[in-house]
Design a protein around this nucleic acid. Sequence first.
DNA 1: ATTCATCAAGTCATCAGATGACTTGATGAA
DNA 2: TTCATCAAGTCATCTGATGACTTGATGAAT
Lengths: 225, 225
Amino acid sequence: MQPASRTNLTDSATGSLRAEIIGGRWGIGERIPNEAALSDLLSVSRGTVREAVRVLVSQGLLDTRQGSGTYVRSTVDSSAALDRVKRTGLRDQWEARAALDLEAARLAALRRTPADLDQMRRLLAERGTVADGGSEAFIRRDLAFHKSVVAASGNRAMMELYDFFTAAITETIHATIDGELPEPDQQAHAAIVDAIAASDPDRAVAAVRAFMAPVLAQLERLLCQ
Amino acid sequence: MQPASRTNLTDSATGSLRAEIIGGRWGIGERIPNEAALSDLLSVSRGTVREAVRVLVSQGLLDTRQGSGTYVRSTVDSSAALDRVKRTGLRDQWEARAALDLEAARLAALRRTPADLDQMRRLLAERGTVADGGSEAFIRRDLAFHKSVVAASGNRAMMELYDFFTAAITETIHATIDGELPEPDQQAHAAIVDAIAASDPDRAVAAVRAFMAPVLAQLERLLCQ
DNA sequence: ATTCATCAAGTCATCAGATGACTTGATGAA
DNA sequence: TTCATCAAGTCATCTGATGACTTGATGAAT
């Protein structure tokens, strides 16, 4: 069931304040009312106002200067984006990460240095099987390999996002299904490296897509239950 | 000059607490010490502890339940990941968004509903040219169209990320180059819609890639200067 | 033995008041 | 004109208190 909407004063104060900022009540760089005034405006205590302001500071919307006041730093709320991504379903997260995997493999095929190639081959060789040191360690080795592919793309934004998705997906899997996803074999992994080594972007994309297909199919199946 | 590191208690408390969480001192779902205990551990007042906890709650790391305690919700610091993505170069951000565009177009070709198609065609028709209402408004209409393609993919994670990149890229472009990027024409846009309408994922991918190529080439050129 | 209302302890939510640290503009002397 | 000083305003932090909520224990009723 949908839980009855439980309100808490700090969140509602944060929301009101954020809405005013995003709505442009104060311009960028402008000083907002002081704590006492906000306390009156929002009908909450100064402590609550401080908590709300602190949250908006941490989200990059506000900026406080001791002795001077609190100023608007930005009027676009981008910080909540990844939070909302976290709350999307496992299939959506997996697909988004796959999008990064695909394009990263393509770019890696175009840009990889010999050092990148060495790194990828080394990690692929070390990957081994689940039997070596348990599934926890195997997953770590598997991820290290995938990350090396993304690293070979030379795109730092993709690397950061890949890290984020990997962590988020791991959490979601822990919280829901566990061990129900098929694990692509060594050969599927090697095909990706080969395509990148051959500097063949199309084959790299195809290899990653073939690699992802069974996992996504299983996710779709779980989604339908 | 680098300003002398100015410490403020709440930030330092937030940092300590975040470090303990990320470091795995408490597992996911586990309850952390109460406010009084944290106050002792961090040597700050309860008010300061509350501000620190509130920030971590807003970042999705903690979860407070009145009457029960404060619990670890996640050990992934997504807000920091986003900050790091923002600090990467324009080319990296654009490529990452392109990766989303490509896969979203492919998924849209597989999943789009008639309503999605109507929406895309309507926005494409309304897109018009720079002459209608200035470049600011044109960019907004252009983005609305692209977002409708991502929306047709039915993937919420991709939509959120697309929004984030759009905001980040807009900020970066405003701060650096402005108006130096080529703008794909109406025909290139229509090709994407046609492929999606035909439910042809490969052609959709090709259309988006052709669409992106000149912009990326220009970014590479600017990067080399 | 099971069920359920009641209760007490623990915890977060919120408020109020006070003091300290810092910024800023005004003031006035050199 | 320059510069030290000062006072008012503001955020930073602490302390103490009260209310609301959760949770597990208790014990009576079935």
